[in-house]
Computed example of a mutant assay.
Amino acid sequence: MEVTELVPTDLDTLKDHIVRRYDDLSPRLQQVADFAMAQPMLVAVETMVTIAEQANVPLSTLSRFSNAMGFSGFSSMQAVFREHYFNRPRDYKERVRKARNEAEFGPDSAAAIFHDFGAANIEALEQLQITVSPQKLDRAVALLEGAGTIYIQGMRRAYPVAFYLWYALMKSNNNVVLVDDNGGMLSPLTRQMNEKDVLVTFTFSPYAPETTDVIELAYKKNVPIIAITDNQMMEQGNKMDVCFEVQEGDNLGFRSLSCSVYLAQTLAVSLMCKDTN
């Protein structure tokens, strides 16, 4: 019996649909997919004509793309984008900016940088709360709960979050392995990984080749992959069973890890709560 997938009702689920179907789309439809993933707010607020012009495709291609994603037409797909952005909280950033403007400190002072990082992180965390669907969180926790061994991997900037999740889950009843390349142990640590396990990977641009290798190995071994990344349309995005896209706060060229740690905490505590039931 053929299972019919439900039409996406939130932007997070729609992004998953786009990533899974991307390789099967025609070049024209991939062009729309690229634009929609890169400019979701424009898709939410602009007219169909403007979107077609900016994506450099005919109007009919937008309709065909919407149909390919399971919608009856472009307007019904656009409603998912609009729902996401119209419900986005908007007052925190303005309040922080006002507090900074009223304070007596210079634009490059430690206090100013403190406020700017705070504003960027608040906005990023609020955005993540809107973007991540409960269904995706449940799928990730279910994979972790059913895993024989949980492998956790992240390199360079992503390593602190991977280490935190490993540290948190060491307190649980789960078998947990932190996959890193200290002492050339990357290959020995992943040799026993199999389809009964799960890989949790943290990867941000520029993507570390070590992480790419671990993802490829897990995919070939049919190991479920949970990814936390900054771009769901990354080259290996369609190999993820669950993919959380995070846009971290950024100030003076320094990207935060607040959203990634937030997700890691959520997964760890949710799994430990399952252990006590």
Rank of each mutant, 00 (worst) to 15 (best):
L125R: 02
D197I: 00
E245P: 02
K196M: 09
I122D: 03
Q236G: 07
F163T: 05
A120F: 04
L169T: 01
L11W: 03
G183C: 10
A142T: 04
Q247P: 01
T276E: 15
R255I: 02
R139C: 01
N101P: 00
V176D: 04
P209Y: 09
L11T: 00
E123Y: 00
K274G: 00
S60D: 13
N175R: 12
L178G: 06
A120Q: 05
R82D: 01
A162C: 11
P89W: 07
Q127D: 11
E53L: 09
T266A: 12
V161K: 07
G146V: 04
G146Y: 02
R82I: 00
M272S: 03
A55I: 07
Q31G: 12
G106N: 03
E104A: 12
A55G: 03
M155V: 05
T266R: 13
L62W: 01
R156G: 08
T211M: 05
M48Q: 07
E53G: 11
P27N: 08
V246D: 03
Q129L: 08
P160C: 10
N194W: 07
E123F: 09
A44S: 15
V176G: 04
P58C: 04
L11S: 04
L178H: 13
P224L: 02
Q192K: 15
D275H: 14
L271I: 02
A147S: 10
Y159C: 02
T211Q: 01
G237N: 12
I152D: 06
D241E: 15
I18E: 05
I215M: 11
T266G: 08
S205C: 05
P160N: 03
P160W: 06
L271K: 02
H17N: 11
S63Y: 09
D241N: 14
M233R: 15
N173R: 15
L189E: 01
N251H: 15
L144C: 12
S133T: 15
R97Q: 15
T13Q: 06
T212G: 15
V3P: 01
K196L: 12
M233P: 07
I122E: 06
H115F: 07
E248Q: 11
R97M: 11
L271T: 00
